[in-house]
Design a protein around this nucleic acid. Sequence first.
DNA 1: ACGCACAAGTTGACACTGTCTACATGGAGG
DNA 2: CCTCCATGTAGACAGTGTCAACTTGTGCGT
Lengths: 199, 199
Amino acid sequence: MTAQEKKRYHHGDLRRVILDTAMTMLAEPAGVNFTLRAVARRAGVSHSAPYKHFEDKAALLTEMALVGFDQLTAALDNSVQVAPEGFRSKFFAAAAAYIDFARQNPSLYRLMFGGEFGTISAHLDPRALKTFDFAVKLIEQGQQEGQVRERPLKGQATACWAQIHGLTMLELNSLLQPEKVGENVIEQAIVALHEGLNI
Amino acid sequence: MTAQEKKRYHHGDLRRVILDTAMTMLAEPAGVNFTLRAVARRAGVSHSAPYKHFEDKAALLTEMALVGFDQLTAALDNSVQVAPEGFRSKFFAAAAAYIDFARQNPSLYRLMFGGEFGTISAHLDPRALKTFDFAVKLIEQGQQEGQVRERPLKGQATACWAQIHGLTMLELNSLLQPEKVGENVIEQAIVALHEGLNI
DNA sequence: ACGCACAAGTTGACACTGTCTACATGGAGG
DNA sequence: CCTCCATGTAGACAGTGTCAACTTGTGCGT
């Protein structure tokens, strides 16, 4: 774990290094078309070293998407812990945190939901489903507080996710510009969504 | 326009042929990673012929996305014309037509909203905005019929589009499987959306 | 303490891609 | 009829994902 260990022939941490490097490159402007060889170069290893840790480029991308879901879930969890008590407060906090995450990691968010690669299968992974579970639990708590009408839990959670995800996508694609679509569309939409859940 | 005109050195229709061929290949299974050279091969021209009609591969993809928006708008227009009178009827018809389009052209739909390439700019193209205009007009008609509460028109239209788009994405990514999420989630979500608009 | 199997690296090759430049063709307009 | 120029072709180039063959050196059982 010392500094010079990086020079070891087997530095034992290459998988993590490659993953981190790839995440970094994805986050850079125009990092969408990042290349496997470029990742290896920046990581300081040969161009085929990544194949010892990831079967495919698709496998790396899938893992990256899953890391993205981990981070998103963590951001959501954190937002509701920080937010004041009450369903309404936590609901708006979570929605804001979700969209913020996408705004700050647009390429990653697109990778997570793009489905261009093996990514589609990633959505059925437990790590991705955790994000869905978060929504379910939040709605459930709202029902227990009497703030959300009693309907099939998963249906409501799905509707919520769909709405927020749709908004996020439109936002990422610059379709929610105020001059085109009016001010605070996002806020309005979330308010409407909340009203829809409300008793 | 006769059959043998295809053999002309300049057959004068290459742009359309290339576009059609590319659309066909995109529609095929695993056509997501379709290649420019493969399009040229199938079109029976040299590998660099497409460059006389499209500056880039990105330019071709952008044009394909715009064609997708044309088709989607046409499908929506048709659905409301066929549907019985009344806002509710037309609203549900349009929602169903939208999701159907995506289900039948998943790769195209992803291309339209993926934003991986120059596609993002395509969303600001008039041809893409027509789809948005459709939603606006539909809601407007609902308001005139007294079926939709009076709120900022574009805000409501955006919320609708976001919801449907979000649902569509989840559906395309196989996240709406009945055993995971309950039966008829889509219908429920659309009903909820309609209720949200309703007075 | 020793030697060795095997995981973890490297190098080099292959087919293929997007794109550029130079050249060929032939249809339309003076 | 001739010639210009849009439209096509051929070939080259750097760069990519992936594979196979080779090297290295670490952890294990004896």
